[in-house]
C-alpha cells in the first residue's frame, strides 16, 4: 500500500463544516441528518416535504456559493459507462433505504449517537466498497 493524494487539512476542514451542519440541524430542527433519508422522503413521504426539498436545494447551492466566494473551479471526473452508472445508482438508492442510512445517516449521524446498528452498517458498506474497488482493479 502507498499513500497518495492525501489532503488532511481540506478533508478535516470540510468535515468540520459537515459536522456543523449536522449539529445545527439537530439543535434547531430536532432531526439527525441522513441524506438518503431526506432525499427519499422527499419523493415518498408528505412529512417535512418542504424542509427536505430546501435541504436538497441547499446542497446544490453549496458548490455554486463556494464558487462565487472563492472563484475556484470545482472539477470532478466520473469515468464510467452508462449501464454501470445506472446499476450503481439503483444499488445506492435501494441499499441505503433498505438499511435506512448512507455515509451521512449511518456514518456520521448514527456513529455520533453511538448506534451499534450504524457502526455495523458503516463497517459493512466500507468493507464492501473496498472489496468492490479491489475487484474492479483485477477485472
Amino acid at each position: 500500500m502507498n499513500i497518495i493524494n492525501f489532503t488532511p487539512v481540506t478533508a478535516l476542514s470540510g468535515g468540520l463544516l459537515i459536522g456543523l451542519s449536522v449539529a445545527l440541524f439537530f439543535i434547531l430542527n430536532g432531526r439527525m441528518i441522513g441524506i438518503s433519508g431526506i432525499a427519499s422522503n422527499f419523493i415518498v413521504s408528505k412529512d417535512n416535504r418542504i424542509e427536505n426539498f430546501l435541504f436538497l436545494i441547499g446542497l446544490i447551492l453549496g458548490p455554486l456559493i463556494y464558487n462565487l466566494i472563492t472563484n475556484k473551479e470545482i472539477n470532478i471526473s466520473i469515468s464510467s459507462s452508462l449501464i454501470l452508472l445506472i446499476i450503481a445508482g439503483i444499488l445506492v438508492g435501494f441499499g441505503t433505504r433498505l438499511s435506512n442510512g448512507c455515509t451521512s445517516g449511518h456514518g456520521i449521524s448514527g456513529i455520533s449517537r453511538f448506534s451499534i446498528r450504524s457502526i455495523i452498517a458503516t463497517m459493512t458498506f466500507m468493507l464492501v466498497g473496498i472489496l468492490t474497488v479491489f475487484i474492479k482493479g483485477i477485472v
Binding site: 446499476i87 450503481a88 445508482g89 445506492v92 435501494f94 441499499g95 441505503t96 433498505l98 455495523i120 472489496l131
Partner: peptide
C-alpha cells in the same frame, strides 16, 4: 435488511464513488 442494504450500498458506492450527498450536490 441492515446488512443486505449496506452490502448493496457498498457495492454501488465502490463502482462509481458516489454516495447520496455528493451525488445530489454534484448536480450543481
Amino acid at each position: 435488511k441492515l446488512i443486505i442494504g449496506s452490502i448493496f450500498f457498498g457495492a454501488g458506492w465502490g463502482l462509481i464513488g458516489l454516495c447520496p450527498g455528493p451525488a445530489i450536490t454534484s448536480l450543481a
